[in-house]
Each structure stands twice: as C-alpha cells, then as structure tokens.
Amino acid sequence: MHITTIQLEDVLTHPEYISIHQMPGIHLDLRYAGEDNFIGHNLYGDFDGGLLHSQAASQLARAANRLQAERPGWRLRVLDALRPGRVQRLLWDRVKGTPQHIYVADPARGSIHSFGMAVDVTLEDECGQEQDLGTRFDDFTLLAQPAQERQMLQAGLLDHQQLELRELLRDCMQQAGFHGIASEWWHFEAADSGWIRANMLLVE
C-alpha cells in the first residue's frame, strides 16, 4: 500500500488539521510532550501536540459532550493525539525485537496517530482528578488489554469500579464514532484503520 505523506510543518497551517487545545470538555495532558511516558523523556520538542484531523476532532467533541451528559463536570483527558511519523519511529526503535513490539505500530505501515485519526484518552472528574482505570498509560501488560478485562476482574487484578470507568469511556467514544482496540483501553480510532491508511495523509 502506498501512503501519501505530509510534513508536520505543513500540517500546522493545513485546513483539515485543527487544534483541540481549547475544546470544551477536554484537558490536554500529552505524555510524549513530557517525561511521563515509557521512553522517559520529551519526544515532541517544540511541537506542542494537541492536533487532530478535523473528522477526529469533531468526534472527540461529541464524546466530550456525551461524558458531560453522563457525568456533569467530568472531562476527557487527552494523553496523545496527532503523533508525527518521526516520533513513531523513535517509539518503534525502542520496542522492535522485544515482546513489547505488539503495542507500537510499525511506522512502515503508519500509526493511526500519525494520520491525526487516533487519540489516547482517559477520564478526569469535576475536580480535575485523573481516574484510576486499572493501569497507567502505555502499560504493556495484560491488565491494559480490554480483551482480558473479564479474566483480570475474576483474578482480582481489576476491580468493578475500574471496569465501570473503562466502560464509561468506551461508551462515550463509541457513541461519537470511535472504536477501540484489543490491547489498549486508552486508544481510540476515528475510522477503519485500513481506510485511513488508504485515503488520508500521514504526517511526518
């Protein structure tokens, strides 16, 4: 599959990519723009993040509205949004050849984040407190995998409140048109990944 690319510097003024910094019901806490990530340092540098393709941004706004209706005062805390291909390669270089490679998209195929069509997100309450959904962001264990949640609950490794919060997050995102993946409770994509790779621009 041939993927058409666009440079990050051109995206900043491209009409199809918009900032979500001031979006109501959203709090940006971009983990790759700081040290609170599995690499342990800032990967974004001067790029402040907080961009999405307009389609994904519109869906995220709907998800935030859904959460407000369910839990007044709560917000979606965005942990990552548009992730340039240059950053994806840094992540891939860290995990390739290890068991953790299954959690990081091969940049040769293109991470859906690099199209501005994926978002990593969790929940915070009306006091701005990040909620406990069972693991940290970028946790590379079975505890982070939605496909394993019932088994983790039965084993006492997840509790009912953590699972209820994951289901609340999924409901808000799915009602807005996102879908999740089997390996990360925080990751949501705004359209079918095959369609995205075939039809959209990958940001380098």
Rank of each mutant, 00 (worst) to 15 (best):
M1A: 12
H2I: 10
H2P: 10
T4N: 08
I6E: 06
I6K: 08
Q7N: 07
L8F: 01
E9Q: 13
T13E: 06
H14F: 00
P15Q: 01
P15Y: 03
Y17S: 03
Q22I: 10
M23N: 07
G25T: 00
A33I: 04
D36Q: 10
D36L: 07
F38M: 11
H41W: 11
H41Q: 14
N42L: 05
L43H: 06
L43F: 11
L43N: 02
Y44H: 11
Y44K: 13
D46Y: 13
D48Q: 15
L51G: 05
H53K: 07
S54D: 14
A57I: 08
S58L: 10
S58F: 04
L60I: 11
L60M: 04
R62D: 14
A63H: 01
A63N: 00
A64H: 04
L67V: 02
L67S: 00
Q68H: 09
P72M: 04
W74C: 04
W74Y: 02
W74F: 07
R75N: 08
L76N: 03
D80P: 01
R86G: 11
V87K: 05
Q88P: 00
Q88T: 12
R89T: 12
L91S: 02
D93M: 07
P99T: 06
Q100K: 11
H101D: 11
V104H: 05
V104K: 09
A105S: 15
A108Y: 11
A108C: 13
A108T: 13
A108R: 14
R109W: 14
S111A: 15
I112K: 00
S114V: 03
F115L: 05
G116I: 05
M117P: 00
L123Y: 07
E124W: 02
D125S: 06
E126R: 06
C127M: 15
Q129V: 10
E130R: 15
D132M: 08
L133E: 03
R136C: 13
D138Y: 06
D139H: 13
T141A: 13
L143W: 07
Q145A: 15
Q148P: 04
Q148T: 04
E149R: 09
E149P: 06
Q151L: 15
Q151Y: 12
M152N: 04
L153A: 13
L153Q: 10
L157D: 09
D159I: 09
H160L: 14
Q161D: 11
L163P: 05
L165T: 00
E167R: 15
E167F: 12
D171E: 14
M173V: 10
G177N: 00
F178A: 09
G180F: 08
G180I: 10
I181P: 01
S183K: 13
H187W: 04
E189N: 09
E189I: 01
G194K: 05
G194F: 00
R197Q: 04
A198I: 01
M200R: 03
L202A: 05
V203W: 03
E204C: 05
